[in-house]
Amino acid sequence: MTATLERKAIDDTAFARLEQEGRMLNPLVKGPTAKPGRIGFRGELALRFAPKLADEARPPELLCTQVMAVATVGEAQLPFFAGYLLSFEYLKDVAEVLGETLSAGGKYFLFCDNIDLSKKYQVPYKGAMFYVLPILESTVYNEMLDLLYLEKNDLKKKDTAGKLDAVANAALKYDITFDTITYAEGLELMGPVRNPNENRPV
């Protein structure tokens, strides 16, 4: 698909503003999936941009990584979004960046590095309900397969967009509930934030 067609498809979805603001980064998928009228995205969502120095474009200060999300052509809200955060605290940034694309009926999953590994929560924020979960399986994709009881082998033959469709379809039907806590309570419960650069060779 040409860049122009891809952009036109995105322009009529809830991704439009995020794309215009340059927030949809490093995509594995960014465009139509096999489901008619659906645009998929797998990549990173920029949450906070670094100040620009002259013409130098600097990397974002804060990212939501391993994002999996879908949007429907002609609809202003995202039905499904999942991603990884180093700290529960950044849920606020995700909610503020997604803003008007969130809905009360959407399925939004955030895997946070600093919450108790034995806990799963639901956190209402900005009119939406977020599932907040620990990261146990190393990737959001594997976590979502585990959470939704999807067999990895069943998805092996699908392309990246097809895998995203399968996860999104199952996520939209997900209706298990967990303890509901407020964002403020989550800040009290969260652990220290790990330095992602520690133990890396210099």
Rank of each mutant, 00 (worst) to 15 (best):
E44N: 06
A161K: 03
G191Y: 06
A95P: 10
V167M: 09
C112L: 15
D113F: 05
M1E: 09
L5W: 02
C64T: 11
V94C: 05
D55L: 15
V167P: 07
K30T: 04
G105C: 13
T177C: 12
K157T: 15
G74Q: 03
K158P: 06
P79A: 03
L147H: 03
K35E: 10
A104F: 13
S103E: 12
K107F: 02
G105R: 12
G106V: 11
G191R: 07
E19S: 11
G186L: 05
A166N: 09
M144Q: 14
E21K: 01
N153C: 15
F81C: 03
G83M: 01
Y125S: 09
K92L: 14
K173N: 11
D113K: 06
P51D: 08
M1Y: 07
D165G: 03
A46M: 09
P60W: 05
V29R: 00
L98K: 00
Y131Q: 06
A168K: 00
D175F: 13
K92V: 15
D165S: 03
F81P: 02
E100H: 08
V29A: 00
Q20S: 11
G74R: 01
Y121Q: 01
E100R: 09
Y174N: 10
Y141A: 03
L85W: 03
V167C: 10
L45A: 01
V67T: 04
A95V: 10
N114G: 00
G162P: 00
K173G: 14
K52E: 15
D159P: 07
K152M: 13
Q77E: 15
A3G: 15
F80G: 07
A128M: 06
L53N: 06
K157M: 14
E44P: 04
E89A: 08
A184F: 10
L187D: 08
D11N: 12
K35H: 08
N195T: 05
A54Y: 14
L98T: 03
K35N: 09
A9T: 07
E151L: 15
A166S: 12
L172C: 08
V140W: 01
V132D: 03
E6L: 08
V29F: 01
Y149A: 13
F178C: 09
Q66L: 03
M1G: 08
E185C: 13
K35V: 10
E198L: 13
P27W: 00
A16V: 06
A128Q: 04
L78I: 05
E6D: 14
T160G: 06
E19D: 13
M144C: 13
T72E: 15
L110V: 07
Y108L: 08
C112E: 11
N26Y: 00
V70F: 01
K30P: 04
Q66C: 01
L155S: 01
I10D: 02
T65F: 00
A166H: 07
L98R: 01
V70C: 07
D113E: 10
E185I: 11
G162V: 02
L98D: 03
V193N: 01
T160Y: 07
Q20E: 10
V202G: 09
F15C: 09
A161M: 08
L5G: 05
M190Y: 05
R23T: 00
L5R: 05
G127C: 07
D154F: 09
V67S: 02
C64E: 11
L5Q: 06
L117A: 12
